[in-house]
Amino acid sequence: MYLPDFDYYAPDSLAETCEALERFGAKAKVLSGGTDIIIKMKSGLLSPEVLISLKKLEDLKKIDYVSKKGVVIGALSTHNDLVNSKILNDRYLSVSEAAHNMASNQIRNIGTVGGNLCNAVPSADLPPILIALGATIKLVGTKGERVMLLEDLFTGPMKTVIAENEILTEIVIPDQSSTGSNYIKFGLRRSGALAVVGIAVAVTVNGGTITEAKIAIGAAAPTPIRAREAEKFLQGKTISDDLLAEAGVIASGESKPISDIRGSAEYRRDLIRVLTRRALYKAINEGHV
């Protein structure tokens, strides 16, 4: 296989990166880890004239906790940076675990969080759990920066609101009122598999009552979705097996999965029913794991 020809730039700063993106416009693509774009280029699905490499943007490779803000994940953190981050392991093991179940060790050492989000693949593993935890993202462009909820990033398969001259620089998981979170990936093998469905939940439990629940589902629609009806249904209810099962049924009803080689829409809907219940159970009983 081979990559079609392109020009390559590796700007020294964020500002230069945005300028370069503005200059080349639609001709250019951002090269972060490259694990998605290189496959697309080798497969003939993409042939950008210019690749703008982010490799020199060292500031975007950190994972920090900033008080009153939350956990700040630089967009260039690799999946394994998430897996191995003490901060995430301590606070949101669910995020580390989601990263750990992606692709393979080799790919997790290359692929980045930013890339995973910006590619907007409906089956991506990180968006559901980050959405469930209410993560925000920062987009920086030549005209300044904007912060938005991650769940507002996606507009369709491989489509986002990111402008041609913008890049995603950081993801923030805000301090939580939630008491537990969990991501369940259902893949067809235990490594190197895309999610047939991926279910993330974050719940706030007070006594035996769910005061708030967030459910985000991957591979269930053209973009990661929130199961808002199920969330509403759970709010203020006393926890019981039937309650969680019913939430699963509602979430399943809200999903709009497609049929493809990994599974039929019917199968996916039923998996969503089952796994939503299981994810809720786990988040309620085990905390942020």
Partner: peptide
């Protein structure tokens, strides 16, 4: 070999 799934060491 992503779509044609040989079992991995974990499987």
């Amino acid at each position: 070999l992503g779509g044609y799934m040989l079992p991995t060491a974990l499987d």
